[in-house]
Design a protein around this nucleic acid. Structure first.
Lengths: 347, 347
DNA sequence: CTGAAAGCGCTTACAG
DNA sequence: CTGAAAGCGCTTACAG
């Protein structure tokens, strides 16, 4: 059978063996010209390359992985009880950046989601023999311990864990909380209401602490009555918490509102706007994260910017180093958050 | 070497061979108890299962794929020139649904992004020997032709192509456009301004046609001066187009605005709100898609809901059938869009 | 019910 | 410079 008759057939998945026979050389030689390592005469090389082009041969990455012991795949596990998964305003951005960076380094990426305590996704990724794992959000210690048990590179982005062995990529949330407080305080606000997201999340907890700590230092400790704890961190909950606390809020003549993330802040802001509260004239509002929506809202939301793109990018770069060298310089990478002032606090 | 000494070692990737020797049976038997097909004595089964548990054996999916000829992986290629990729308000939702459904069917999913004309991602997925491919958004014909060349199941979600061989999963955009026009017309609006997204996108084009067609039927054809063409479909562009057309808009005393997607509508709305235009009293505004942001905005945006979750879900179900049976009932699956009325058109 | 053998599509030494 | 052989970790007939 000659090359042309093969070309006219429907393209099936070819093998290196077929390429070898069509080129009149051995499998070994084909393998060498494809990989570019090992010798091959110019003539052999030329012929092989030509055949490969003609039959549109695509090397089988599965077979390659089988012998090379690495798949060129990484897994991203995003803990979420339910959607939004990738459409989460913060994690989606981190993931975008992970995808872009991974592609540049020729990794393919599996994206999975799982319950906080479940080992299922992790096991699945382990079976697929991913070269590395990126954990986003909060994972229980049993999941971490389980992953640690196996020889796989992994790290955690924006996560919660007391485990110091785990490589962390995080925002300086406490410092961000301080900056937020500093901004509002500098504007003259003394009676500030706070909507605090779930405190078992490291970031919400640190942001709240940073915020309150700064005001305390200034001599204006935050009274317990000025903090409302949200049981979730989404828009609907922000709206609802504000609604529930509307009485308290108005009675104590608060002049500003801080929420430990933008989504909560925006939910609360929608409620305030519905009540015809003028923002920022009557109430200044601040969030945290700088999700896209913060700039889109009217009025634009003042916030503390988390380096989502940098976090995603660096997580892949660091994971790549971990995969290739088995170790990495620092256990903890922290990013300085930045104050973004928009109309919601501007006078 | 006995089981206990092995357990105490760091867990390396085990092989079926080790399990066999630890259990005192052959590889074949181990394979049979794992797969559950083929006979194995209760004693053998018990012993093997116990050893597997003890050493935390994870079967190597790569080796499995090598022989079974299917990887259990599917690839999602999302065409995007640049971010947002997964954080795109519409595609992110579709992807969430794809991830959830794929997980339920035990598929792992690769998420990649690519330029419209590039074959790179497709080739990469082909080399990884994915069982199937989901194409989201617009792909040029050369990419489609290229994929078609290989024996891989694939389909297109919310995409643009004249190729009738391709299985499509789409929203009834033209009908949606008619519904939008019907709603505004029913409210008494006769002078409606339109911001139309890039017309090379099937959906923007059909939405515009449906909208204009309906008004024409009612005897109120849309004058060319009432349509502004946007060169992109994002928020910034919506804002900018509204800004540029503000003069025309006000002069011709338009009472309503329709944009071919929510993001454009919201951008325009932000501009109007900044100009202190009262919505909906002075201008009613409508978008299309029903992204999360539409409900979050103040005022909430009236829109035409696209079945994002259903589209994502069904794309996986259909792809799965295609993978398993090589064919599928219908070439085209269309969803009926639904009108969602919110404050932006409510009086 | 069980094991030895062959084979999936590659790569990697090792002879020549 | 090139080819034959072994092997990656499984599964699948095929004998026994």
């Amino acid at each position: 059978m000659d090359v042309n008759s093969l070309i006219s057939e429907a393209k099936m998945a070819r093998t290196i063996k077929e390429i070898a026979s069509l080129s009149g050389v051995s499998k070994s030689t084909v393998s060498r010209v494809i990989s570019g390592k090992g010798y091959a005469s110019p003539e052999a090389r030329e012929k092989v390359l030509q055949v490969i082009r003609e039959v549109q041969y695509k090397p089988n990455a599965v077979a390659r992985a089988m012998v090379s012991k690495h798949t060129g795949n990484i897994g991203v596990i995003l803990y979420r009880q339910q959607p939004p998964i990738v459409s989460h305003p913060l994690y989606g951005k981190i993931l975008d950046s992970i995808l872009t960076t991974a592609a540049a380094l020729s990794y393919s990426v599996f994206v999975t989601t799982d319950q906080e305590v479940s080992l299922h996704s992790a096991d699945f990724m382990l079976e697929k023999r991913v070269d590395g794992l990126i954990l986003i959000s909060r994972f229980r210690q049993n999941v971490i311990d389980h992953i640690k048990n196996f020889h796989v590179s992994y790290l955690m982005v924006n996560g919660t864990t007391e485990d110091n062995d785990v490589i962390h990529i995080v925002n300086k949330d406490e410092q961000g909380g301080q900056k937020a407080a500093g901004h509002l305080f500098g504007l003259g606000h003394r009676r500030i209401f706070i909507i605090a997201g779930p405190q078992e999340h490291r970031s919400h907890n640190l942001r709240l602490n940073g915020f309150c700590g700064h005001l305390q230092e200034k001599g204006y400790p935050v009274p317990a009555s000025a903090v409302a704890y949200a049981s979730a961190s989404d828009f609907a909950e922000g709206y609802e918490v504000m609604r529930r606390n509307w009485g308290t809020f108005a009675n104590h003549s608060h002049t500003a509102l801080f929420a430990t993330n933008d989504t909560l802040a925006l939910g609360a802001m929608k409620f305030l706007l519905e009540k015809s509260v003028r923002i920022p004239e009557q109430v200044a509002v601040m969030g945290f994260d700088d999700i896209d929506l913060a700039a889109m809202y009217q009025p634009g939301l003042t916030t503390i910017q988390v380096e989502k793109t940098k976090m995603g990018h660096d997580s892949v770069i660091i994971l790549d180093r971990l995969i290739k060298h088995g170790q990495v310089e620092a256990k903890m990478v922290e990013y300085e958050p930045r104050l973004i002032v928009r109309e919601s606090t501007r006078r």
